[in-house]
């Protein structure tokens, strides 16, 4: 826009003493790597302490930041909500009364509405609601309040959006879960057996 102004800014940094970018990258990899390791241990320790049983396909806590698979496709275990009291801890193969559906980080508005209408029109569904990243984050902060460093390393954008569903009847199989897991925008579906007074979806 203003060539003169830009020249003046260029001159202002004209006496740059210089720095070696490869050395900076090297330091960042060493120090940043240590931060990653700490974060990973904290997450793993927290998950172990909470006795969180992971649903198949979510990946194990220890592999949260493993080198091999590209991470954005899995929801880190520590970011998954825990089973509500009285509910089965992990996913059940039959008899699910409540289902949580976690969306991919890339889920679009269109995919969300498609899931919502599918749920609304599904006779097997008694009630359902949507949990936003922000709500998930508030809940996450409460859940991990004893690990402030871990909480600080996570932003709302790291938490998955989800649909929480209560079924009309306990599901005889995982057909319901499988059907929704196949919908675009859904990352993971976990069905749990819960008492009637548990929160819808069966998670905290």
């Amino acid at each position: 826009m203003d060539a003169n102004l830009r020249d003046q800014f260029d001159r202002a940094v004209g006496h740059d003493p210089g720095a070696d970018p490869s050395a900076m990258a090297h330091t960042a990899i060493l120090e940043g790597g240590r931060v990653r390791t700490r974060r990973r241990r904290l997450a793993a320790a927290g998950v172990a302490a909470a006795g969180l049983v992971l649903a198949a396909g979510v990946g194990t806590a220890l592999n949260l930041r493993s080198e091999a698979p590209p991470p954005p496709l899995t929801i880190p275990a520590a970011m998954m909500p825990l089973a509500a009291p009285g509910c089965s801890e992990g996913a059940v193969q039959s008899g699910a009364t409540d289902v949580s559906m976690f969306l991919t980080y890339e889920a679009t508005e269109q995919q969300r509405s498609a899931i919502r209408s599918a749920l609304d029109g599904d006779a097997r569904v008694e009630s359902s609601y949507f949990e936003s990243r922000q709500t998930a984050y508030e809940r996450f902060k409460k859940l991990w309040q004893d690990s402030p460093e871990f909480v600080a390393s996570v932003g709302p954008e790291s938490l998955p959006e989800s649909f929480r569903v209560r079924l009309t009847e306990p599901a005889p199989s995982t057909a319901f879960e499988r059907q929704y897991a196949a919908m675009p925008g859904i990352q993971d579906v976990v069905g749990r057996t819960c008492p009637p007074d548990a929160p819808v979806g069966g998670v905290k």
Binding site: F9, A19, A28, E31, G32, R36, P71, S153
Partner: peptide
């Protein structure tokens, strides 16, 4: 440097920026 008028501090802040970014690179 333009923000803080000190090349050493500028170097330090830049290093911290890269370290933070590496720590969250996958995210």
């Amino acid at each position: 440097y333009l923000m803080c008028r000190d090349w050493h501090l500028a170097q330090d802040l830049t290093q911290q920026t890269f370290t933070k970014m590496y720590a969250s690179w996958e995210r």
